[in-house]
Design a binder for these strands. Sequence first.
DNA 1: CTAAGGACCTGTCGGC
DNA 2: TGCCGACAGGTCCTTA
Length: 270
Amino acid sequence: MPELPEVETTRRGIEPHIDQQRVSDVRVRQPMLRWAVPSNLTELLVGEQVRAVRRRGKYVLVNFEAGDLLIHLGMSGSLRVLPQETLPAKHDHVDIVFETGMMIRLTDPRRFGAVLWQPSGEVHKLLASLGPEPLTDAFDVEHLAKACKGRSQAIKLLIMNAHVVVGVGNIYANEALFRAGIDPRRAAGKVSKQRLARLVEEIKAVLDYAIKRGGTTLRDFLASDGKPGYFAQELLVYGRAGEPCKSCSKALKEIRLGQRSTVFCTHCQR
DNA sequence: CTAAGGACCTGTCGGC
DNA sequence: TGCCGACAGGTCCTTA
């Protein structure tokens, strides 16, 4: 499910329910996610108070005095806020229970997600070499141009690389490249600086727009379906292979890049 | 260093 | 109805 907008929507959804609250219990029913959930998670967390709920790329970071709980949703994960007595279903792997009687519950059928611990003062290996946040000034054309220089890799794969910039997943990589008029197959090193500047703008615009859309369903975050409005978006290319380009009406083409579905307009994107 | 491909896991959908 | 392959919002790791 999640690209950056949905992770941010999730962060905003859980924050008001757990910020400043104290952990009373931890339940791990399935420790084998992408990496093993730390076996001492209960000892680490019980009694600790949440000081902030942050996001870095697609990781949700729950900050405590002793460190940060890192949660990644992988391909199929979601977090919900539920009463602590809610019975678990098949793929409900981890519950973090608070003294309020509410809990956050991680559900993840494919188990590509992760729950990890980062002790205070340390930076987890997985976070250590991440690129800048796309919605900050640190992500600008200078940064992207430097990352592209001399690279023969397709521009789409490059912008999906979290070491270049975090949070650009398959859907928004397709969307941003369409909006910028750039062929996703083009070698990163052969995109002009002017067009990279446009790409930076479009990545920011599409992510910002999607977060605003995600926000429209925040009030329903406690609902049992737990799925912020994401599908409802008006995507211009993703999932529209064979359908007419919204700009020129030519049928959109679908190819595979890095084993990922890539949809674009051969007329509008060069 | 770069680039390409496999790997992890479950659910769903289309075709036969 | 059942079986089988392909595919799905991520990304690390191995290999060349």
